[in-house]
Design a binder for these strands. Structure first.
Lengths: 327, 327
DNA sequence: CTGAAAGCGCTAACAA
DNA sequence: TTGTTAGCGCTTTCAG
């Protein structure tokens, strides 16, 4: 469809080598010749064929990015930020949205790998030896984010355990006597990657398991709203700590629908600090994910040269807790 | 890095042609030979190089998608849906987020075009003769969505004008005497694409301009919250009709911060029906964008064969109005 | 049924 | 300063 270097060479009466020298500012070409070629390129509207360039050079300047689900604002922000970071360095993005489906994730990974992306940033729904092997076979630099897969892959995430412990301790100090942790554990298959939730739950247990005055409880099903409805409220001051703002908002809706009030009847806490919280009352206490920082780190891990023998770096960022009026 | 067809040919002691016949189920190969090749491919973990394939075949099975801003849930849903549609047909997505910036949009378009996408779905922030020309030079099939650029490009969007007229008429019938239209008109440069907002404003005017009992007003600045604060409330029943839910939510926040109540003191209406509305009170009246349908239409317009002389189809879908308790 | 060879558009090494 | 050529990995046509 478009015009090619070969056409341009014919038009300008020069060879392909000269065309290349003109475009890539290589030495060994008369200024006048370069001018002539550039003019012709403009006149005939030459556009380089990146596919051919990539094939020849073996690099694409593309980065694959795999995320769970754009409709959760958290991921939308993540993708936005990573596009900014990557574009600033003249890279482009290949996006795949897994929708928390292992097959979709693999499909996406396989496609971007076949398209020779220079590296992959992966927020995975999978893990396990078999998946490790699958990733290895892709033969691409990979950085895992947020959900760790195994120590053999570079990783940048949160200090989930620590922040959850600290958060829980603070909640206990506020006088809550019964704490409920809400995370979607049961929902997934055995090979599902629950790294973040497990870490947070561990931190939660460290804080309240060590305290004999506090009941603790895990709600991990898809039917947590159901369980919540059959829950006895009022006897002991109760707080619900959620693994994501979305859960907290769903619960808030349900409570309000039953005429209950937060934080009067129940304390409630989210995680992620999505934009939508701005419009919800009471203002939800939550944890701010350092998205930008995570994107920056992930990209530099991807492009940093590491020697083969080196251990894969495992980085934990510190999120910030913000206290609203919900707990 | 990986193994290639050539390697495979050597390993199996056959020619490249035979390898190709095996993989692409072409006739003219002994079943036994095919078996042997497939086994070797599995054993050595052969992965086709899509870049090379694309270069040779001249198609990529990739679709470019340009949107404004993922952090507005509306676009997130759109991208999600379009990925589903496209993946179902074995296509993949090249995403570019313009962030409402004309340069970013062009950068993205240029890149995806250079990567030989088979077609582009474009939700543009630009328009005008110069941009038309830019698009033409990309030399790709393009379908514009939501924001029309010109009649020369296939288009699928909403009947913005009609729905806004009907909506406004209904609001007037509810007894509102003063109506305010909020759209971000002033924010943009001259070549900015304001198609949807203009259409909606036109519909708004058709409804209230024709009615001598109704005041009407346009707020188009970025400082509409400021203007709103200096607004005299109470004299005549007032309704604010917004071009997007986000505006409506911002206004709602501001009103509530000042102790005003919706719909008691003011009627309020959004547009898009984003998921976040679920968590906001009062429930906002809004317009449901037929996202899935728009994606389906866009994709089929892109892949339908049209003869060159044919007019570019211009399709308008009917959105649905949903009434909450905000007006 | 299989092999050989050309070519997609671009780059890079080597000649002239 | 410029031209020639081989080749990235795959597909496709033409011979055998």
């Amino acid at each position: 469809l478009g015009i090619t270097t070969k056409d341009l060479a014919r038009i300008c009466g020069v060879s392909l080598g000269t065309i290349d020298r003109a475009f890539r500012n290589r030495p060994g070409i008369k200024a006048e010749t370069r001018e002539r070629i550039m003019a012709a390129a403009r006149a005939y509207d030459y556009k380089p064929n990146l596919i051919a360039k990539n094939l020849r050079q073996g690099r694409t300047f593309e980065i694959g990015l795999v995320v769970h689900d754009l409709e959760n604002e958290f991921f939308a922000q993540l993708v936005n930020e990573i596009q900014e970071i990557v574009w600033a360095k003249q890279y482009y993005l290949q996006l795949a949205v897994s929708r928390r489906d292992a097959d979709r994730e693999r499909t996406g990974l396989e496609h971007m790998s076949g398209r020779n992306v220079d590296g992959i940033i992966l927020f995975s729904v999978c893990r396990g030896a078999e998946f490790d092997e699958f990733l290895r076979k892709l033969n691409r630099p990979i950085v895992t984010i947020a959900n760790k897969i195994s120590g053999s892959w570079p990783f940048v995430g949160l200090s989930d355990r620590r922040v959850m412990r600290e958060l829980t301790e603070t909640v206990i100090a506020k006088g809550y006597e019964r704490l409920v942790f809400v995370g979607p554990l049961r929902r997934f298959a055995a090979s599902a990657n629950l790294y973040q939730i497990e870490e947070r739950y561990a931190g939660f247990l460290e804080a309240c398991g060590g305290n004999p005055l506090v009941d603790h409880l895990l709600w991990a099903g898809g039917d947590y709203l159901e369980e919540l409805r059959s829950f006895e409220i009022g006897k002991r001051r109760t707080a619900i700590l959620c693994c994501s703002d979305i859960f907290a908002l769903e619960i808030l809706n349900d409570l309000q629908g039953r005429g209950l009030s937060v934080p009067r009847d129940l304390g409630l806490m989210g995680f992620d600090s999505i934009n939508a919280l701005k419009y919800v009352k009471p203002s939800l206490s939550t944890v701010v994910y350092p998205i930008r920082q995570m994107g920056d780190m992930a990209f530099s891990l991807l492009t940093d040269e590491r020697r083969d023998g080196d251990d894969a770096p495992q980085i934990e960022l510190e999120p910030k807790i913000t206290w609203g009026n919900s707990i």
